[in-house]
């Protein structure tokens, strides 16, 4: 059972004490391989017979396209952008994640509130304000953090996507080349993630190795979270015949 516990006051319109599903969050910086792990996990879980939904940032029907549009202009201040992200997060929580958990599914979330808190924290927003903002979020059953250092991250980013404007902190770092600002930004971001990992009890997995090694470690963690689901759902053993 997933306890219906939130970081702050319970939001209006949410009833019940617990849910039969499981909420599993993957966190980590861009390029670390989060989405790959989510894709692998989904297949792995389905093969075992679990029903799975996966969701990630800006995939809400309400605010997803609005955020994409707003980011294109590079004009949003960090407070507005975070309120936009929070709208998107809550909409997905309410419409995708909670219904899935109610139905007994495993919800795999590719970046939860922590990515937003880390990115905004690096951009100078008050940590108290950010924690307060995301108080509406459901506390996950497990948050798996894929940890990496910039040295190992660089080749992946160059190979996969190249340097992204936002993921290099170009919106607020004024110094140096794109490469320099990427290194600076990612170092700050990783430090922020590690602070959050301590505070929120993340399961930290070393993601410097290859995909297979990381998946082995990730799936071992997920196994622990889902192992009780089958017995939860089983009817009690008949005592006599």
């Amino acid at each position: 059972m997933t306890d219906l516990r939130f970081y702050g006051d319970r939001p209006p319109g949410i009833d019940g004490q617990s849910l039969p599903g499981r909420l599993i969050v993957l966190e980590g910086t861009d390029g670390v391989g989060r989405s790959t792990q989510v894709a692998l996990l989904k297949e792995w879980l389905e093969r075992k017979g679990y029903a799975v939904i996966d969701t990630g940032l800006t995939r809400s029907s309400l605010a997803g396209s609005g955020i994409q549009r707003a980011k294109r202009g590079h004009t949003l201040d960090p407070i507005t952008l975070n309120l936009f992200y929070a709208t998107d997060m809550w909409d997905r929580l309410e419409r995708q994640i909670l219904p899935a958990l109610r139905a007994g599914m495993v919800a795999l979330v590719d970046r939860y509130i922590f990515s937003m808190i880390a990115r905004a924290g690096v951009r100078g927003l008050s940590p108290e304000w950010l924690q307060g903002l995301y108080e509406f979020a459901l506390i996950p059953d497990r948050t798996i953090y894929l940890d990496i250092d910039v040295e190992h991250l660089l080749p992946r980013v160059i190979h996969d996507t190249g340097f992204d404007y936002w993921e290099s902190g170009r919106d607020f770092l004024e110094t140096g080349s794109v490469y320099q600002s990427f290194v600076e930004y990612q170092n700050r971001l990783l430090a922020e993630f590690r602070r959050l990992a301590d505070r929120h009890d993340f399961t930290v997995i070393d993601a410097r190795g290859d995909v297979g090694a990381t998946f082995e470690a990730v799936s071992r963690e997920v196994e622990q979270v889902i192992s009780s689901m089958v017995s939860d759902a089983m009817p009690p053993e008949p005592t006599n015949r």
């Binding site: 309400l62 201040d77 309120l83 709208t87 909409d91």
Partner: peptide
């Protein structure tokens, strides 16, 4: 699509902007 929290957040976003 709006429920109390999303109603609140999207108006806060508008106001912040």
């Amino acid at each position: 699509l709006l429920t109390p929290i999303s109603f609140s957040l999207i108006h806060a976003a508008d106001f912040a902007h």
